[in-house]
Design a protein around this nucleic acid. Sequence first.
RNA 1: GCCACUGUAGCUCAGGGGUAGAGCACUCGAUUCGUAAUCGAGCGGUCGUCGGUUCAAAUCCGACCAGUGGCUCCA
Length: 634
Amino acid sequence: MTLTDGSQRQLPAGATGAERAAAIGPGLARAAVAVKVDGAVRDLGRPLDDGATVAILTERDPEALEVLRHSAAHVLATAVRELFPEAGIGFGPPIDDGFYYDFAVPRPFTPDDLAAIEARMAAVVEADHPFEREVVDRDAANRRFADDPLKLERIAELGDDETITVYTDGPFTDLCRGPHIPSTGRLKHVKLLSAAGAYWRGDSSRQMLQRIYGTAFFKKDDLAQHLHRLEESKKRDHRRVGRELDLFHFLPVAPGAAFWTERGTAIYNELVAVMRELQRDGYREIRTPLLFNKALWETSGHWGKYRENMFLVLDSETGEHDFSLKPMNCPSHHLLYATAKHSYRELPIRYVTYDVLHRNEVSGALSGLTRVRQFAQDDCHIYLREDQIPVEVQRLTDFILGYYRLFGLEARLKFATRPEQRIGDDAMWDRAEGALREALERTGLPYELKAGDGAFYGPKIDFDVTDAIGRAWQLGTIQLDYAAPERFDLGYVGEDNHEHRPVIIHRAVNGSFERFIAILIEHFAGAFPVWLAPEQVRVLPIGEDQHEAAAALTTRLRDAGLRAELHARETLNYRIREGELAKVPYLAVVGQREADAGTVAVRTRGAGTKQQVMPAEEFVAKVVAEARGRELVP
RNA sequence: GCCACUGUAGCUCAGGGGUAGAGCACUCGAUUCGUAAUCGAGCGGUCGUCGGUUCAAAUCCGACCAGUGGCUCCA
């Protein structure tokens, strides 16, 4: 066989991965978790194929962590079966941050159950049961899982050409493709996190199973770090920070719709202002109605499928739900486009809107600002000729990435191509995908291909940003649309003096302002750069004698266009603490020395007592420059 | 929409079948302070809503509403 370093080794026939590792050295034998044979991860205990390329996976390999977590799921099931012998067994895969297992049990698991199960798991680990793999035929599999309808259903779906394998660790046997760690004793650092309901096969018409989530690591420190990260992200949770910094509130009378305080509104307005500034040239900001007759949704095709997600409004004359709040801007933009005859010379025409939208999300889906019923998109529709697509997409990509950079956010691009369910012929899709791909290639940026993930009306590019703590969010999108121009019978007069169909690009950068602000809150942990901060400077006179000088400074800051507040009550210590907790970028302290000299003692957020005394004029200019330049400070 | 959990003062939380408690916030008074909580007093809730059980319910039960964790959904 060949090792991954290219060297060749001879081993006796039927030698296993474990023996292979041992042949190299005892250290590797201990560290080995699984083995990769010709690219496929396998159990250490399986015989190696003659002539195969072999790599020993150790605790350092990400694939080994998956194996560990998959085995952790089995250990979980082992424990659950001991405590709840009647439990049906669903699926138990490794996931990004851990693993889960679904069980069919008569009642949901309680926190006490989880504690008991975790204790039981420790015993299973202690027992160090080997994971034993067995190949069985269909009849044997059916017999073995005769008492578990979920497993029987799964077995029935397996193709005749598939090898059916079962794995046993101690008392527990599961239908499973594997691979697994050699024995349960390798599972040292595991933690159950939560229990929740989940539909069998992810199908909301099927039965609800009880899912237990957990995570596992090879190293104690890694587990501790992971749990610490979970705590940290809880601290950054935008719902918590939003309350602590008094940015927005949700009240039961308007589920899924935020009440923005003046502080939250300042952030909101700042984002809209940036978008306006960046779209000063070449864009046309428009406003269209919020309430529409259903005829519009019939034209757009939304009335049939998506009506249940729209807020319908009763017409008092007809007594019918003939009107609806708009859930999207697209159709109204198309209508406005169609109010005039357009020349090819005008294109591309770019409409932008920040109107409020309403979507009746199912109650269980609502979550803080990330999933709301009322929101505003930075919605843009571009009407253009097909030959203009590459240049326009390039322009949009630059725009979007440039925008994210303002916040220190990096984006990854995804190219989504024709889905199974789609309109238009292959020639249209070839042209559309070709144009998008060409534009993507021109950016020189790496991108991921998501084949079949496009919209039914055209291919798209999605932008995933990664925030400060490494979480990915799908934000921006560039979608080509060949369907709407047909439905709305849109046209332009070409150079040849004939009517042509334009193509439409749907573009969003923030997604929705609500969701984007949620992401920013968590990204910055509430410590916004000065240009975004709801309160940019807080002026603190030390004593009453400096009140006048401090008030003058506050006015000066405001005159310069900054958001500044004067705080004169309570002790200086109290106000410093308050200012730090409110994450105000600059605390401008004015004592007698400063009042006399026309200076200010600046305490920068996070810099502690390292204050800087500077002329008031200089301070104002500095903050104005930082805010105007949208610098990521302090 | 589905499963589970939660719902006590503006916030964080304690209590718990016999007529509600702390800290912070807020108000008032004193203090006028040089970089992360000055001291004191006071105001404030009928315990998410509605209904049931009970001599008695905030406490037990049910329904509903909202939130949280998931599932489903996200044009």
